[in-house]
Design a protein around this nucleic acid. Structure first.
Length: 417
RNA sequence: GGAGGGGUGUCCGAGUGGCUAAAGGAGACGGGUUGUAAACCCGUUGGCGUACGCCUACGUUGGUUCGAAUCCAACUCCCUCCA
């Protein structure tokens, strides 16, 4: 029943990773004959990747799991240029220092999802700065520039959309696709890389690389893109209340990460389970068929497995337990953010709005006041009557702490010292 | 180099001398409904203060005026067209 010969492509298709491929049949055939290698590039624009990058990461993981070799290309060089794809404005240019700091943060993410090493299917991380920075302008133009037609470059979305909307596109950015194409060719030459994968917005860049490799090396390589993920209600993946859903623990706690998946929209559960977990497909089919309140069980499975992949089993279980005690039993999970307050201050009493600001449930006194006025602020699950209400040692509960809540989902504990 | 247009709150975007902490929208936060979902409805949305209030804010600096986001000058950054 398997429509594709290779395990890799078969999984890519049935789990929903495929958007476009330059030649799916040939790619499939190649992957079924032997172990291939493929790469995905990541720019170093932030010190961590967020959930929006998770599809490509999972795709690399799948590649490795099915017996092939993944390359992670860090865009140390291309980040200096800035990818115009999908952007209205040129982004701020980062300096070398910022780029290498970002790269260090991003590396940590990959170490969780891929196995690196020297073995045949071990992942390898490369940095395109290694070959891009040393390029010489004239010889580069003569050797590679002749393969690019400006007429054609103008037809690619990344460029075309900017021009159509009369938005500026600098020559620097215009060169981005050439450099990315060069990356692909360079990897094909050095490491026999057979394919480049990426988000659908990378299609133009990838196709350029496939063409360049064919022209320069007379080698056939492949391009494959993943669908750009949005939630069913149209929001971009990876963005949420407090900003991006970061994959690094120091930027987003495992508990919050777990919560992100737990709060998946109903309509997305099946799709997300296929993309972001490695559960067998028949199990996923069963889970996504759940209806009404039962679908919450599927969301918990999603949260558990996705968090375990990113932060490990231990953190995932802890996050789940905290969530369960907090939401289902109204209790206190030990993973809730906890803040220490001196006993003396509490004896005197602390105005509620000030306390809420201190435990970071509100970013300013005004915000805390509004929260309290709106009835969203609770002390030990009891709504506060007024913003000047004073919290004292009398509010300590039987566990010796005070539970503060902003709305139903955000909680913090006050610990007396 | 020349000509023109523009820089407003998280973002987009109104606003051409007092009624402007600044319309509208988006986003965000809170409440309601529910299932820690979506959709929908309501409220809030510069900072500080219990409150009368005070402070900071419309690219930067200075000026005109009783009074300026609004007028003037210089500077700066961005965009468009021409060369």
């Amino acid at each position: 029943m398997s429509a594709h010969k290779s395990e890799f492509i078969q999984s890519v298709v049935e789990r929903g990773y495929l958007h476009q491929c330059t030649d799916l049949e040939k790619f499939d055939a190649r992957a079924s004959e032997k172990s291939i290698s493929a790469y995905i590039g990541f720019d170093c624009t932030a010190s961590s990747l967020h959930a929006g990058s998770l599809v490509p990461i999972m795709l690399l993981r799948l590649l490795q799991k099915t017996g092939h070799k993944p390359f992670v290309l860090m865009g140390g060089g291309t980040t200096k240029v800035g990818d115009p794809s999908g952007k209205n404005d040129a982004r701020k240019l980062l300096d070398d220092e910022a780029i290498s700091a970002n790269m260090a943060g991003i590396k940590q993410v990959f170490e969780k999802f891929l196995t690196f090493g020297d073995g045949p299917t071990d992942a390898i991380m490369v940095n395109n700065d290694d070959w891009l920075s040393g390029l010489e302008y004239i010889s580069f133009l003569r050797d590679y520039g002749k393969h690019f037609s400006v007429n054609r470059m103008l037809t690619f979305d990344s460029v075309k959309l900017r021009l159509e909307r009369d938005q500026p596109l600098s020559f620097l950015e215009f060169n981005y696709m050439i450099l990315q194409a060069y990356d692909f060719m360079e990897l094909a030459r050095r490491m026999d890389c057979a394919a480049q994968m990426g988000g659908s917005d990378q299609w133009g860049n990838i196709v350029n690389g496939v063409d360049l490799t064919r022209r320069v090396l007379s080698k056939e390589v492949f391009g494959l893109t993943t669908p750009l993920l949005t939630t069913s209600s149209g929001a971009k993946m990876g963005k949420t209340a407090d900003g991006a859903v970061w994959l690094n623990e120091d930027m987003l706690s495992p508990y919050d990460y777990w919560q992100f998946w737990r709060n998946t929209e109903d309509a997305d559960v099946g799709r997300f389970l296929r993309l972001f977990t490695e559960l067998p497909l028949d199990e996923i089919t069963r889970l996504e068929a759940l209806e009404g309140a039962e679908i919450n069980d599927a969301k918990k499975v999603l949260a558990d497995t996705a968090t375990a992949l990113c932060h490990g089993e231990v953190a995932s279980t802890a996050a789940r337990q905290t969530a369960e005690t907090t939401f289902e039993q109204g209790g206190l999970g030990d993973k809730l953010p906890t803040f220490d307050v001196e006993r003396a201050r509490l004896d005197e009493g602390i105005p509620a709005f000030q306390l809420f600001r201190e435990v970071e449930l509100a970013s300013s006194g005004g915000e805390a006041r509004r929260l309290i006025k709106g009835g969203g602020a609770k002390v030990n699950d009891v709504a506060l009557p007024s913003e000047v209400h004073v919290v004292t040692t009398n509010d300590l509960n039987s566990d010796g702490v005070i539970k503060l809540s902003a709305g139903k989902k955000r909680h913090a504990l006050v610990n007396v010292i």
